[in-house]
Each structure stands twice: as C-alpha cells, then as structure tokens.
Design a protein around this nucleic acid. Structure first.
Length: 574
RNA sequence: CGGGGAGUAGCGCAGCCUGGUAGCGCGCUUGGUUCGGGACCAAGAGGCCGGGAGUUCAAAUCUCCUCUCCCCGACCA
C-alpha cells in the first residue's frame, strides 16, 4: 500500500474525548473515528488490525473443529420471549418495531438464534458434537460506553456455540474452546490470564474469562500467589477466618449504649466520629425484592455482593431500598439504619457471627448504638455468605495470599447446560431412540476489544507498538526524501519485491519532511521500519529498525528482503 | 438515572464574567526555499459560535428551553 493513496489520517494532538491510551492512540493513528457515543467507524488501518485478529480466530476455530456461520443481527421478539430474556435482559437490549408494529431487537448475543437452528436441524446424536461460530457486529445499549472500542455499544464479536449429547461431552467441547482461546490470545501476542467468572445474563453452570492484564482494565482479577487459583473479583471466593462461631459468652457483653451522631451517616463518618475501626461496625443495608424488603448485614469494611444475595434469595429482582422505604422500615433517615427492632428478615454475613460489642445504626435520626450483641439485642434470620472479596482475603483453595490485578475481558466461555435448549425445545434422539435435550456451551471474543487491549498493553510515548501477528502492516518503508532519485527508486524496488513476496508493506511515498514521516511511523506502530537514506544507500546499505526494541540493523540492500522475511517469520512464530 | 464538565474552522483551544469588527496554534490550498526525528517564508481558503425561543438598538457573550458529547457513580458480555 502506498501511503499517499491511503486513508491514514493521523492526529498530532490528543482528541479531548479520549482518556485511556488505547483510545487516544487508535484515534491519533487514524484507526477509528467516532460516529456517536459508543459507535465507531473503523478506518483502513484499524480494519486491517481487526481482520488480523479475525484471521487468527478463524484459524484456531477451524483447528478446533468449529464451523463458521453468519447469523442475523435483527432478531424477532418471539424468539427472545421463548427464553424470557426479552423481559430479563433489560435496557441493554435495543428494541424497536418494524412497519407492521412487530417487536424486534438488535442482537446483543445470539443464543436464541443458534438454538433455533439447532432445534430445527439437529435431530440425531450422530450430528453431535458440533460447534458453530460467527464473527459479526453486536449491539448492546450500554449505560455508559467508554474507552473507545473497548466498551462500545456496537462492537465486533466472535461468538460460538457448542452442542453436545450430554454433560460429559459438553465438558470436552468446553475444554477444546478453552484451549483454542488460549491459543488465539497467545498468537495475538497478548499477556493474559484465565479466571473463573460469573455467568451473568447469559446464564449457565460456570464460565471462564480471558483477561488481558492492563492498568486500564475495568475488571479486577484476584489470584493466589501460591497456587493456580484466579477469579474475577465478582466471583472470587475466599477462605473465612477460623473464628466463625459467634462468641456466646455474655460475660463479654458490655451494656448497650445509645450515642448521638449528628449527621454522621457513612461508615467513614461514623467510625471517625466514634473513634472506632470499621471492623467494629456492622452495616445495615435495606434491599427491596419481589419477595418483600430484607435487611443485610456486613462488617463496616466489607461490601455486599449483590449477586450472592440474589442467589440466596432466589430472585433476580433486588435493589437497594429507596430513601422512603428505608425511613418506613427503620423509622430513621438513610444512614442510621440498624438491625434492632426490625420486622423484616435480617440476613447477616458469616463474618458477623464472631463479632461482639459492635456499632450499628440506631434506627433513629442522629443516633448510633454501641456494644450491640447478637442474641441479646436482636436476632439474625440467617447467617450466609454475603460479602465481596476484600483486599487481604486469602485463597479459598490453599489459604495463600492473594494479589489483585486489573484486566480487560477479551474472551468469555460459558458452560450453558440446557438453559436455552430446554426453553426452546432443542432435542435429539439418542442411540436408544429416546428424546434428550441438547447440552450447550457459548463462547465469545471481543474482536475490537482485543485490538484495543493489545495496544493498551503495548505502546510508548511515541505511539503504538503492534505485535507482529495483529499489526496492520508488517513493514513500513520510509524513504527519507522522495525527491532523490536513488532513494525513490530503491524504495519502489524494495516495495515491489516485498509485495511480490507476500509481505504486508506500507510505503511512505509522501513528500513530507523526514520528521513527519518518522513521527507518523512511530505513532502507527508498524513492527519493522525500513529507512532509506542517501548516506546509507550510497554505501549500498539500508536500515531496519524494530519498533518494539528500537534495535537498528544496517544491512546490504540486497539482503533487506530476506532479512525482513526472517524477522517477520520469527515474530509471528513467537 | 444521580453528580460534574463541555459544545466557537478538520483537530486542540481562547473570547463569554463586563453585549458592539470571531481569534490563536496545528492541519488544509498555492508558490518558493528546505529534506535522517512533527522545517521556513509568503499568499490564501475555511464559521447558522450545537439548536430553538426570549431580553436588547445590538447576543458567541444575558435569560429560559432543548439536543449532543465527555467524566465520576450506579449498572454491565
């Protein structure tokens, strides 16, 4: 490709809308342009990188025996109603009507569509296992899109679905995808970690996320420093301290005491005001559910994990109570709720069991209680695991110390079971001629996000540093001055040979000053730069510079092409 | 949805408080000089000052309404 004939609009300045490095660099390098919030166009350079990732995915999917399809993006409501996700999915699902006033949505994921195909086309155990995938645009109406294509509303995703005769076979399909995904991200040149994850709205038994480690990641990954345990913090388990049985020795109980705490509402305010540690305080949170209001207690320094709470209560319908409801139930304004005298169920986290003489809200304006004790002062309906993983918590497997890292979720695999196949009646006949439900798995890769994550993981103050396998071009030829015949002719010659050899090459044939060309070259981050200058050429030499290391090689012009091919080969094979 | 910020040339911004000629840097066009790390000189093009209503002799500037974008939170493959 000739730069002068290409669309590669680089920017000197950082667009004000971009916060994180990958977003800034993708805009500056002319890879993407925003159309509206969370919706981006890919310009040629960005598209080339996208296509590279897609190519790697295709190869690895084919290697794993998956078969490519292309499913529609506009989906009828009926299909979604069958699995009840029309109601469950919420506002992220972009819905609209056609001219006949029929309901449709933009596909945020395609389990329903693929299951519809499966129930029509798969009738025999002989047709399984089968794994179908597609690479296609998805739409999720995110509340707040951010970070460019990293969290966009419209985005390109590879999604795949496996169909098996039983759980055991489904596990094998899952493992195949686990391996294939690992290969995909390794081949993309990414540093990543696989972690246990929540299944969310997709549902299913268990799932793993593929996380690219990066400072700007939105996910927190908990991992053990001693064993192989790693999980998304949303999902992370932890070892409880041994003191889980509550102290029942009333001799320890100090007399209950009410104190005035004017305007002290948050844990921070109250603990400072009373000079106690957050560990000595119990937070009382009132939730509204479709089964009525409940109170949930956690220690002051802990946080409620709403997913756990939902699971315990067996409801998807759960939210923090409004200020009015809190007042109604506790007879006090928000910030002064406590567990004493409540007429609703009170759930307490396991770590509350061992606490004595703690602080709670007084269920009265501007008042808290000191030396509160369970049993004497109030009763707990149920002790349960309610809280989130907290810094300092220990590994659930080996009790080892844990560490936190930030990650970008680029892939997610789910063992679905029969959630969709059962709801939609996707069944087959087994060897005995007996009808059985198909067991499914679902597997996704954020393609655009993978490119962004790669950049997030690989850049410097000058610009992007593309890993060779996903670089838009492999080599950039940079003739320092196009007006000097020797330089121009050599550039053209090398360009032609490299093209003939199948090398992906960009020739910067613009009549720009060298400085501009060098700056743009660094910005767009092509792994190899072939610089042609007069002094070197007069000696029959050309310069090859590696973007990543800055390493410079002066080699004979005649050896340039073979040298470049060798470097590309080595970098692609890792 | 709550809180905060911003919409002025393609991009980055000033001007607004205190109403009166729309400006700067980069980019773009033309000519010339330059040519191994974002060159220089000269001449240019480019604006419904996000939109609507109002106040005023007069609105980018003041008032009200509205739309859009960004950030924080809630939420979320």
């Amino acid at each position: 490709m000739r730069y002068s004939k290409y669309l590669l609009p680089t920017l000197k300045e950082i667009p004000s809308e971009a916060e994180v490095p990958s977003h800034q660099l993708m805009l500056r390098a002319g890879m993407i342009r925003k159309l509206t919030s969370g919706i981006y166009s890919y310009l040629p350079l960005g598209l080339r990188s996208i296509r590279k990732v897609e190519g790697i995915i295709r190869e690895e999917m084919n290697r794993a025996g998956a078969i490519e399809v292309l499913l529609p993006i506009v989906l009828p409501a009926e299909l979604w109603q069958e699995t009840h996700r029309w109601e469950e999915y919420g506002k992220e699902l972009l819905r609209f009507k056609d001219r006949h006033n029929r309901d449709y949505c933009m596909g945020p994921t395609q389990e329903e569509v693929i299951t519809d195909i499966a129930r029509r086309e798969i009738r025999s155990y002989r047709q399984m296992p089968i794994n179908l995938f597609q690479i296609q645009t998805k739409f999720r109406d995110e509340i707040r899109p951010r970070f460019g294509v990293m969290r966009a509303r419209e985005f390109i995703m590879k999604d795949g679905y496996s169909f098996d005769v039983d759980e055991k076979n489904a596990d094998e399909s899952y493992q195949k995808m686990y391996d294939a995904y690992s290969r995909v991200f390794a081949r993309c040149g990414l540093k990543f970690k696989v972690v246990e994850a929540e299944s969310g709205l997709i549902g299913g038994h268990f799932s793993h996320e593929f996380m690219v480690l990066a400072e700007t990641g939105e996910e927190i990954i908990v991992s053990c420093t001693h064993c192989s345990y790693a999980a998304n913090i949303e999902k992370a388990e932890f070892k409880r301290s041994d003191r889980t049985s509550r102290s029942e020795d009333p001799n320890l109980f100090k007399p209950l005491q009410k104190v005035r705490t004017p305007n002290q509402r948050t844990v921070e305010e109250v603990t400072q005001f009373l000079s106690v540690s957050p560990k000595e305080l119990v937070k009382t949170l009132i939730f509204e559910t479709d089964k009525g209001p409940i109170a949930a207690l956690v220690r002051g320094d802990h946080e409620i994990n709403e997913k756990k709470l939902k699971a315990i209560l067996g409801t998807e319908n759960l939210q923090l109570a409004s200020e009015e409801t809190v007042e109604e139930i506790t007879h006090a304004p928000k910030g002064f709720a406590g567990p004493l005298g409540l007429s609703i169920p009170v759930l307490a986290d396991l770590d509350i069991q061992s606490m004595v003489n703690f602080v709670t809200g007084g269920n009265q304006k501007d008042a808290h209680l000191l030396h509160v004790n369970i049993g004497r002062d109030f009763h707990i309906s149920q002790f349960v695991d309610l809280r989130k993983f907290t810094q300092g918590d220990r590994c659930p497997l080996c009790g080892g110390e844990t560490r936190w890292d930030k990650g970008i979720e680029v892939g997610h695999i789910f063992k679905l079971g029969t959630k969709y196949s059962k709801a939609m009646g996707a069944a087959y006949l087994d060897e005995q001629g007996k009808e059985r439900i198909i067991v499914m798995g679902t597997y996704g890769i954020g393609v655009g996000r993978t490119v962004a994550a790669a950049i997030e993981q690989s850049y410097d103050e000058h610009g992007i540093i593309f890993p060779m396998p996903i670089a838009p071009f492999q080599v950039l030829i940079l003739p320092v001055n196009m007006k000097i015949d020797l330089i121009r002719e050599t550039a053209e010659e090398l360009y032609r040979i490299l093209l003939d050899e199948g090398v992906e090459v960009l020739l910067d044939d613009r009549e720009e000053t060298p400085g501009v060309k060098f700056k743009d070259a660094d910005l767009i981050g092509i792994p190899l730069k072939l610089t042609l200058g007069e002094r070197n050429l007069n000696k029959g030499l050309v310069e090859i510079k590696k973007r990543r290391t800055g390493e410079v090689l002066l080699i004979k012009k005649e050896e340039a092409v073979s040298g470049i091919r060798e470097m590309i080969r080595m970098e692609i094979e890792g």
